[in-house]
Structures are given as C-alpha cells and as structure tokens.
C-alpha cells in the first residue's frame, strides 16, 4: 500500500486519486493476518489444507473451523475473518441449493464460484457496506469435470488454479508448491504434499501451536467432501511432521 488512506479509505464506494479502493486493500490485510490455507489439485482429487493457529487454548478443539462443506462434493476453505467466512459459506450453500432445485444436479464449481465472486464483488461497490475480509478457496471433484479448484479474493476476482494459497505464509507456500507436480499426483501423494506444505510454512517462532485441518474430495472419496477424514488426515499429519523434522535437521 503506497500511502495511508488520506480520506479516501472511509468508503468502499470511492476511489483514491491513484486508482485504488482502500477498503479492499484493508480487507486483504485481514486475509494476510490469517493462518495459511492452501488448495492443491491432483489427478483425480483436490485437497484443502489449513494451518489453524491456536490463539487460545481454552477454545474447544473444533472451534473456528475454516473448512466448510457446501454441497455433497464441494468444499470451501477460508483465510481471513471467521464471521465473514460463516456468512459466505451460507450464501454459497444457498446458491448450491438453489441451483439443485432448478436443475436437479450439483452446481458446477465454476458457476458457483462466479456467483459467489459476484456476491463478494458487490460488497466492494457500496458505501453502506464493507468488503469481506476473506480469501475463499473452493474445491470439488466430479466424474465429468474432474478435480476443480478456484479462489476468490476480497475484491471479488476469481481464478481457477492448479494450486493456490492464502494467508500468512502465502508467498512461502507458493514457492514451495511450485516445486511439486500436483497434476499427476495420486490421492495419497496429494494428501501427503498438503501436510508437508502446511507444516513447512508454519512459523515455528510465533505460531508454533497450530492445528492441521484438511478437506478432501476426489474419486477415492466417492465424490463426497470430507472434513478431517480420519485416515487421510493422519497420513497428511504424519507426512507433515516428518518433513518438518527433516527440515530442522538440514538447517542445523
């Protein structure tokens, strides 16, 4: 961000003279503070993985989950404000339910993503509202479209990805992800990679205490989106912990 708002940051409905909408930039800041979240797309599987930073040990273990199920085969992960995330998850579910009601099939992920992106974008246009402090990642798998992965930014822009990341260690995660060939990966390999990346990019100094969360959907889950599936999550966590100790050894 080049300058502080100087009066142009009070409303989402006004540009600054150098062509920015500061409210969107600020919303992105909210995303950057959040624990890392990644989505990766394999041969016939998509994995969402979240580094859930434990801010307070008094929370219950399943508090503030950042992965949601939107439809049978659609998962959503968020980085940013938890409350905004719950709201957008609900909007996405309504979109999916509405589509199903009209066409009697699951909503294509591209279509869902367009709808939700449009919704998020609309919140950047009016003075009465603020943009969502969210980066939303959608993942799905089905027989016709195969694995699909999309991400929406606070501005409402959305793209399809082979692999994407948001949150604190976005850059690190992206650098790390470029080393992999996800597109050829089997489900197990993909799950392990997901675990590895999250554990590797975790900031051991400041956020050592974190919880690993994973959403998975693919051929091997019979096209059903699972959150923290027992065996696959264990596989990911083991791979992640192994990678972490190996990393530590190298550095010494």
């Amino acid at each position: 961000m080049s300058t502080i708002g100087t009066g142009y940051d009070l409303s989402a409905s006004q540009f600054s003279p150098d062509g920015r909408v500061f409210q969107i930039d600020y919303a992105s800041k909210a995303v950057e503070k959040s624990g890392t979240v990644i989505g990766i797309r394999g041969k016939d599987c998509v994995v969402l993985a979240v580094e859930e930073i434990v801010v307070d040990k008094l929370y219950e273990v399943d508090a503030a989950r950042r992965i949601f199920t939107i439809e049978k085969n659609i998962g959503m992960a968020i980085a940013g404000l938890m409350a905004d995330g719950n709201f957008v998850a609900d909007i996405a579910r309504q979109e999916a339910a509405n589509f199903r009601q009209q066409f009697e099939r699951t909503i294509p992920l591209k279509h869902l993503c367009d709808r939700v992106a449009g919704y998020i974008h609309a919140y950047t246009l009016y003075s009465a509202v603020r943009p969502f402090g969210l980066s939303v990642i959608f993942a799905s798998w089905d027989e016709t479209d195969g694995p699909q992965l999309y991400k929406i930014e606070p501005s409402g822009t959305s793209f399809g990805y082979y692999a994407c990341a948001s949150g604190k260690a976005k850059q690190q995660a992206k650098t790390e992800m470029e080393k992999y060939k996800f597109a050829d990966m089997s489900t197990d390999e993909l799950v392990q990679s997901g675990g590895k990346i999250i554990y590797q990019v975790n900031d051991e100094v400041n956020n050592k205490d974190f919880r690993f969360e994973m959403g998975i959907v693919g051929r091997e889950t019979n096209g059903v989106h699972f959150i923290n599936h027992a065996s696959w999550s264990q596989l990911a966590i083991e791979a992640g912990k192994a990678a972490k100790t190996a990393d530590g050894d190298n550095e010494i």
């Binding site: 509405n98 009209q102 709808r115």
Partner: peptide
C-alpha cells in the same frame, strides 16, 4: 453471467445505493 436468463437476480434484499439496507 448476466446473459443467463435462468440465473436468479444477484440482489434480492441486497444493499442498493441511496437506500437503507435491510
């Protein structure tokens, strides 16, 4: 997307300029 006549209007009960939002 806007050409899709089947799509639901994006704003049902959404904020609109110059009006109070429910």
């Amino acid at each position: 997307m806007m050409n899709n006549s089947f799509a639901q209007p994006m704003w049902s009960n959404g904020p609109s300029p110059g009006q109070f939002y429910n």
